[in-house]
Write a protein that binds this DNA or RNA. Structure first.
Lengths: 147, 147
DNA sequence: CAGATCTCAGCGCGACTGACATCC
DNA sequence: CGGATGTCAGTCGCGCTGAGATCT
């Protein structure tokens, strides 16, 4: 009995190629704008809720504060965001979009529309109930794997 | 209508968290052995088919030859693999496991058994037909996304 | 004190560009 | 010769760990 054909290995492989395709496609779409995937994620997050700390943004992106720190340093150097000390809290740095950052976020939305459409095509043959079941299955897999 | 609740965004989010959980879990399991995820993948691949080139291994791992080159340099320095020039082809370097590498591969299999079990639990409530449908759905999503 | 936050240093991975060697 | 393939070198960004400093 070959391990590569077992049910759990097929699920792992399926997860890998699907998420890999999604990531590669978005990176390719955003590259012409000079944006990386985590940078675009930060732009979107600050667009929805301005004035967040490094630690806040790290939690949203599922990465460590140290990793997000490097991303924010690059984005500030590129003029996409500003970080201003919190008046009421000594060490906190609140990040917000610059005019340039907001404009790039809008262009990013336009560029990733095609990917959104591809995702819709992927779930198009499913009924709303089946689509929700697929989502719940992925959530459940993540929970089981985390132990 | 909120975009974060749309069907395609839910699928993208589900893919992200499930694959993220799988990767993090395997990294954590392999770290005590001094192995990274791509290193373990190379060990498994060479275990199944010895004497492969850098370019061969890169294709299997879905990364560029340049990226795989860095991985193999580290593994050769750690004594996990050997690379010997192909007699019949001037520039090719054929990689094979060392005794140390083969032993670490075996330990890696033992350590990742728990993750395999967690994956089985994730698909346990599904019938074989439903599990295959889930796999096909992920493959189809990857195909749609690639365009 | 403990907890939260930010920062710096080092390492490995993965991408990219550019260059060179080799094979057909 | 020219095209395809394989390797090597340099640079960049991401993500991790470890450690330290500062503020509540």
């Amino acid at each position: 009995m070959s391990m590569v054909n077992s049910v759990q290995s097929r699920l792992g492989y399926g997860l890998k190629i699907a998420q890999h395709a999604l990531r590669k496609r978005m990176e390719a779409d955003l590259r012409p704008l000079g944006l990386t995937l985590p940078q675009y994620a930060v732009l979107v997050e600050l667009e929805n809720n301005t004035g967040q700390t490094n630690a806040d943004l790290a939690v949203k992106a599922f990465i460590t504060p140290q990793s997000m720190q490097g991303v924010l340093v690059n984005m500030e150097a590129a003029g996409l965001i500003e970080r201003k000390p919190d008046m009421h809290h000594g060490r906190r740095q609140l990040a917000q979009l610059t005019t340039k950052g907001a404009a790039l976020a809008a262009r990013g939305h336009a560029v990733t529309l095609a990917v959104e459409n591809a995702m819709r095509d992927a779930v198009a043959p499913l009924s709303p109930e089946q689509a929700s079941a697929l989502f719940d299955r992925l959530r459940g897999a993540a929970r089981d794997i985390e132990g």
